[in-house]
Write a protein that binds this DNA or RNA. Structure first.
Lengths: 235, 235
DNA sequence: CGGGAGATTGACTGATCTCAACCCGGGTGG
DNA sequence: CCACCCGGGTTGAGATCAGTCAATCTCCCG
């Protein structure tokens, strides 16, 4: 039996400082269904799938989740990752549409579900909460726009370099300078939007050029500046 | 001198039924800066450019605007179009960041500007307005996600077919069954995310196959079902 | 009539994808 | 204990979609 990291006071503490719920009053926090703690998901388990009705927020408390769409030919496109503090499923909750993405834990995860009705009431009654949600949506929108332009205009090499850099910025590196996040070659390909083989070839090319070091799935960035240059990023 | 289509009562009427502002009270409507009417923009004129601070909503009252990002090599990627009733610039207004897209009128346009402070106050004071804004953001987000997957996974042919269909759905057709929206080959390429020459070749291929008819920039859809099939769309 | 923007076509190139073979390590069942 | 299997990872060869370059054409406008 796995001991849950977030229960009772800890969980409330975590939620009340999260980006989404940071502006709730004590009373509003009381109404969130936090008593029974988080739901646990094993590595590789699906949280929800494209096309289902979700009608609620999924707040990630622990772990990393990949959010992806499955294309016509069955190939996945990873849209983004959710990490502790992030919300999933708010698009469908707000619009009332079916989920347009699937979500799968790539590490063991702990998640709290907050019913859509509760969220919608909060939007109407708590202006600061509404504003926070809007900010989150707008951030994602800006990132999505960048993503579109990148995929449409950049080469696979440029995009892979950019993805590696962004993984570092998002998930940071461990004490040995390896990216904290561990992905299969196929998952990398599904972010970049290319074939697995292409990722493999480019990674070993980057290794040849001493830009990165690779040990299995672990990637260490040796030449961040060169990778950034190669990626033709704005920042 | 051009006579403005939207002034005084007409403009107020238009705004009060728009998707964004449909839930404002009479009093809230009174505060919007509608007295001086709309701003006019000639065809091809820039409304605002990527990187500037906009800090306010631009409500399109007339015309069609293309919203695009300019990539590293100077090539534009069209993200979406705004038509009467649509808002532009709300992402930057909400997040406080600089504009991440440029906007240019592809037809003569009439636009109302609403200061960001006013909008932010409305978000906090009017829950229904906040909800409407969230819906708009979430809709765009869903479309952006589809776009990412399409560009990453589909061939140029599939995407062009899809774009033609979506232009029909968004802008409708005139009495002769031609798409209402008129775009240059380059603009089509900038939506699809490909080279102008590729669009030209594929369009004439579609014409060969009797899927469409072309007269200059005007496109008539002859075989909608076949185009949809070719595009591998979900709907 | 000259100029310029957009559209078209052809030829060539090359980045990426696909297909196929093979490797490697871990787990499992006999 | 060992043979086998399976999911990932690698590598090579060949096919091809789509981008680039360059020449030409067609309007439209001043």
């Amino acid at each position: 039996m796995e001991k849950k990291q977030y229960t009772g006071y800890n969980l409330r503490e975590f939620i009340s400082t999260s980006t989404v719920f940071k502006h709730l009053t004590e009373e509003e926090l009381d109404h969130l269904p936090l008593e029974q703690g988080t739901d646990s998901y094993k590595k590789s388990s699906l949280i929800y799938e494209e096309g289902v009705r979700i009608n609620g927020f999924f707040i990630v408390c622990k772990g990393i989740i990949k959010i992806f769409k499955t294309g016509f030919d069955g190939k996945d496109q990873i849209i983004r990752f959710a990490k502790p503090g992030d919300v999933m499923g708010f698009r469908s909750t707000i619009t009332g549409e079916l989920a347009c993405t699937s979500t799968k834990a790539i590490e063991e995860a702990e998640i709290v579900y907050v019913p859509g009705e509760m969220v919608k009431n909060l939007v109407k009654s708590n202006g600061n909460f509404a504003m926070d949600l809007l900010q989150i949506a707008c951030m994602e929108l800006g990132e999505a726009n960048d993503y579109i332009t990148d995929i449409a205009q950049k080469t696979v090499r440029e995009r892979l370099a950019e993805v590696i850099i962004q993984l570092k910025w998002t998930f940071d590196i461990d004490k040995d300078n390896f990216l904290q996040i561990s992905l299969t070659r196929e998952e990398l390909a599904n972010i970049v939007g290319t074939a697995t083989e292409s990722v493999i070839r480019l990674l070993s090319e980057f290794k040849q050029d001493k830009l990165i070091e690779i040990h299995g799935r672990r990637i260490k960035i040796l030449e961040e500046a060169k990778l950034i240059k190669m990626s033709n990023m704005h920042y």
